[in-house]
Design a protein around this nucleic acid. Sequence first.
DNA 1: TGCCCCGATATTGTATGCAATATGCAAAAA
DNA 2: TTTTTGCATATTGCATACAATATCGGGGCA
Lengths: 226, 226
Amino acid sequence: MVFLDDRTRADRLVADVSQDIIDGAFAPGERLDELSLAERYGVSRTPVREALRRLASSGLVDVRPRRGAVVASITPAKLAELFGAMAELEATCARLAAIGMSPLERRRLEDFHASMAPLADADDADGFAAANLTFHSQIYAGAHNGHLAEIAAGLRARLLPYRRAQFRTPGRLPRSHAEHGVVVAAILAADAAEAHTAMLRHVSLVEDSFERLAALQPATRRAVRA
Amino acid sequence: MVFLDDRTRADRLVADVSQDIIDGAFAPGERLDELSLAERYGVSRTPVREALRRLASSGLVDVRPRRGAVVASITPAKLAELFGAMAELEATCARLAAIGMSPLERRRLEDFHASMAPLADADDADGFAAANLTFHSQIYAGAHNGHLAEIAAGLRARLLPYRRAQFRTPGRLPRSHAEHGVVVAAILAADAAEAHTAMLRHVSLVEDSFERLAALQPATRRAVRA
DNA sequence: TGCCCCGATATTGTATGCAATATGCAAAAA
DNA sequence: TTTTTGCATATTGCATACAATATCGGGGCA
């Protein structure tokens, strides 16, 4: 047996099945029986089982003992909870960053934020989205709590499919950049409460701007993204 | 094959291996090879593998592809991160509870807090610890965000082995109860900022009182608990 | 002596078969 | 017609065999 990379079959299955669920190839609530998946991806049931358990722990599927796995159906209410949890976590990181960032970290954040201005002005959605990830990661890191950062990053990743169109809303980029500016200013001023508030507002606004998509089914979302 | 309950072998393995790790039967860093575990628990490698993956996702073990699993060694720094993350999450829940708890929830929290006074006065560590769990769970629930509550509860469970002795510190019970009182008062007054601050202080104090144990190895901790 | 390569062994990753349970459907009873 | 029971089928849980890789120790070489 030849391994093309150092990932196991199960590793790749986790990625592939995730993608297919996100892309809407499997609808929420749809059964994922092991044999079909094994045939579809050309492997045996063993790695399929492992992948399903991992996807369950990340929330993408539900597995019920002896009754198989189904694609987790995220209700709008659950989605709102996830967004809310992420907003709180981000706000907490921002507050901690305002308190604890080193001078170097503060300068880097300031510089990076400034470097995003041209992307916002040029309405470069993809470029801004990528930079946005870095921006938020810098704040996670500035909280100086790896576990908190891990939780926040995990939530962000899980919500990614529901956010993909957010930066395509007309005028969203400059507004996001301005909101970032408020957060950055608060962090630089070591104003913990304001950093918290500003970040909470920023994430919540992004969420609101995307809210109408939240209730749509994946297949529809897919069409929206395309 | 006869199943005595509706749990699978893997389910029971997760519980058993967790307990053995917490009890110090396996030291941090120790290798957990699948065959030995399978023999030890009288099952085949398949459920052992599944259990190890699940333990990995809960942070108790590290699995490296093709290189086996080891008991996760939690450094004091990592432990401090986990405690810090939990404190922040609890504080966030307290803040949300202050804002959003229903009148009924507020009254129940107040009543429950009052009912803990006798336990604190009687220095009933076990009783207080059990009630303490309920107290904090009520606040998680009051945040009205199931996912946030889930994360907080998960962290609390993961840190349990490092906290077991906390209520045995002399005078800790009445102090904890008093700190709870500050949190409850803030929540009842819908004072979000104070609820946050009071809870952060409470959890951090509990942590501090237990800090010297944090650096000890599990075997030693086990002795301390006994 | 110290280092590197190579092969024997150990251990993990995957496939497959069997046992146990869940599911669906048809027939019978109310 | 509706509900229930029993059986056939489908699917999961587990065990085991095989494939691939990691680990460790010895021999060759500088």
